[in-house]
Design a protein around this nucleic acid. Structure first.
Length: 308
RNA sequence: GGGGGCUUGGUGAAGUGGUAUCACGGAUCUCUCCAAAAGAUCAGUCGUGGGUUCGAUUCCUACAGCCCCUG
């Protein structure tokens, strides 16, 4: 039987972390982040990283928060953004490590692509982003890009709207490097784990209220200072600084918009993000949506006992 | 009492004699290396009634509501 993996997903500010920590404590688990922003150091406030500290376990350094080990959390410099492929590799190795020690791996996060990359074992084309090529393609008009894509990979071209430059450019990048159609390379591997997928759900209005409150709390904790520091260290064009909170406050810090407006934008954009996340997760029929953490514990217990 | 103006999706605005545009908001959706990203779709009987017209949201008219000026 395949190793077991518990996955907890849900929109931002839904309370995933609390649930994950409760489950981890109860079942001897360790958490792996599937959140594209919590990976980075220096975004503690804005990315709502669980406050914790680094400790040593043998030769390794481990981030522990509320008594639970967290992997892929606050470990990477924003100067070196992780690609999705790298994320998958790191996550798999963290999960392997946890399993080896006889603990329960719990994958937690709101970045759907990352969750699926691990759960569905995506074999992501090994083509690193090529900034020079992207820049060149960026100069072409959308119809020109689309025409080129239609010629080289009609199957993928038919799947995406001709306005989506981002997707077209990535596809062309992969095609150019590998010499094969992009659509052919988007393969799923055999799943590596037996997974229990849990979703944290909240009524829309409640979620929005939580988002507002959380943003206000972040401001009180010094989100502005955090953003300022990040801007100084990495420059505003840094990819990681496109994060919710830092991006908008960055505009204010650069004098482009008033601070109050920036804060409203953070709230607005976070709401929009939460909606997108819900859309992403809703289409996955395997996810069991739960109303309470007791329900989660019951489900995990049953999942762990089940040996077939 | 007299004069003038306004009335377009939830909000704020644009616009045209041939069923309407934008921003914000809302709903739905796509997603295999920028993903807290990128992108798609849906929603208005253009205040109400009448008239002119092949055809009116657009012109005329009455009414209603709101606003401004004036006595």
């Amino acid at each position: 039987m395949k190793p077991k993996l518990v996955v907890i997903v849900g929109p931002t500010a839904s309370g995933k972390s609390d649930l994950a920590i409760a489950v981890a404590k109860k079942f001897g688990g360790e958490i792996i982040s599937a959140d594209s922003r919590q990976l980075y150091r220096g975004l503690e406030i804005g990315a709502a990283i669980e406050p914790g500290r680094w400790t040593k376990r043998g030769a390794k350094r481990v981030y522990a928060a509320r008594g639970v080990a967290h992997h892929l959390t606050a470990f990477r410099s924003p100067a070196k953004p992780l690609t999705a492929a790298e994320y998958k590799k790191s996550a798999l190795s963290a999960i392997g490590d946890i399993l080896k020690r006889g603990k329960l791996p719990i994958l937690v996060g709101g970045t759907g692509l990352y969750v699926n990359a691990v759960v569905d074992n995506f074999s992501i084309p090994e083509v690193a982003p090529d900034p020079a090529l992207r820049q060149r393609l960026e100069k072409l008009s959308s119809p020109a890009l689309y025409a080129r894509l239609q010629k080289k990979d009609p199957i993928y071209a038919a799947k995406i709207p001709p306005q989506n430059r981002r997707y077209m450019i990535r596809a062309l990048e992969v095609i150019q490097t590998t010499g094969r159609p992009f659509s052919e390379l988007q393969k799923k591997g055999e799943p590596l784990f037996t997974t229990l997928l849990l979703g944290v759900e909240r009524p829309r209005v409640e979620l929005y209220r939580r988002i507002e409150r959380r943003v206000d709390a972040m401001m009180k904790r010094g989100l502005l200072q955090e953003a300022k520091k990040l801007g100084r260290l990495y420059g505003w064009s840094n990819q990681v600084l496109s994060s919710l909170g830092h991006r908008q406050l960055g505009l204010a810090l650069q004098g482009k918009i008033p601070l109050e407006e920036a804060v409203l934008m953070v709230k607005r954009d976070t709401r929009r993000y939460a909606k997108r996340q819900m859309g992403w997760f809703r289409r996955d029929a395997r996810i069991i949506w739960l109303k309470s953490s007791q329900e989660a514990e019951k489900l995990v217990k049953r999942f762990l006992v089940n040996t077939e």
